[in-house]
């Protein structure tokens, strides 16, 4: 289906914030789901992009980094242009895994985006720990300030917030208080480290996986990851999986 681009902004270098007028998607979308976007130009396949936020039951916000031909072409669209989008797709996060205790949203780099909608659903009760390489890579933290109870920022070079990784903050929190659930999205090594801490401390944890994708609807079985020893489809069985079930090394 085609939808109109109603807002566009390059929020940091090569990272674009788009909002489309898409009530059909907005009405159904759950945090952690994604859309499959036809980018045009020399790209052929659609590009899976996580839903960042849903507003007024009709606007769908997604943020993407320009990585290649497809996302480059997408970034050249302007307000008023039409975009062919499928979605919402995938399963999304399950709020109900949360036990008593702090709810943590842990994001890394461009993996922070799908956590925003989840933060809103938890209605300012969560703590977000967001990690970035450096100051110039920091995005949408002001949105998290508005939607979470506490926000910790880490940077690898210490230019903003705590120097180090999200897991440094996580380890400290785990030792200080009861954690009710962790929801995480970011680079695979980061999610693996978060999942290990969660599993070791018996904290319910969901991870949002990424893999090169084809159809986006579960038919082509290309975007698989190892879940309980089986090849699960990231697009249909995920992208969100229970951290205990994912084998990050396969």
């Amino acid at each position: 289906m085609e939808f109109t681009l109603v807002y566009k902004k390059e929020i940091i270098k090569n990272v674009f914030d788009f909002v489309i007028d898409a009530p059909e998607i907005a009405e159904k979308a759950k945090p952690g789901q994604f859309i499959h976007v036809l980018c045009g130009g020399r790209s052929y396949l659609r590009r899976p992009i996580s839903i960042c936020d849903v507003m007024d039951k009709k606007l769908v916000r997604f943020i993407f980094e320009v990585r290649g031909e497809g996302t480059k072409s997408l970034s050249n669209l302007n307000k008023g242009d039409k975009i062919d989008v499928l979605g919402p797709l995938g399963n999304g996060f399950s709020k109900d895994i949360a036990e008593d205790g702090e709810i943590l949203l842990i994001g890394g780099g461009i993996g922070v985006f799908p956590l925003l909608n989840l933060a809103k659903e938890f209605n300012k009760t969560t703590t977000a720990i967001l990690g970035f390489r450096t100051e110039s890579a920091i995005t949408i933290t002001s949105d998290f300030v508005k939607t979470t109870k506490n926000l910790f920022i880490t940077t690898e070079d210490g230019s903003v917030g705590c120097k180090g990784f999200v897991t440094d903050v996580l380890n400290r929190m785990v030792s200080e208080k009861k954690i009710g659930a962790i929801f995480t999205c970011g680079p695979k090594p980061m999610m693996k480290a978060v999942a290990e801490i969660a599993n070791a401390n018996n904290i319910p944890c969901e991870v949002s996986m990424e893999e090169r994708m084809g159809c986006g609807v579960g038919a082509c079985v290309t975007c698989t990851c190892n879940v309980n020893g089986k090849k699960a489809r990231v697009c249909k069985d995920g992208p969100v999986f229970n951290a205990k079930d994912v084998n990050f090394d396969d």
């Binding site: 396949l45 975007c223 090849k231």
Partner: peptide, 17 residues
């Protein structure tokens, strides 16, 4: 079980799987 991922690569006007 099939092959390990990545299992798909885009090409000009097509895909490899």
């Amino acid at each position: 079980l099939g092959n390990p991922s990545p299992r798909i690569a885009e090409t000009n006007y097509g895909i490899l799987n």
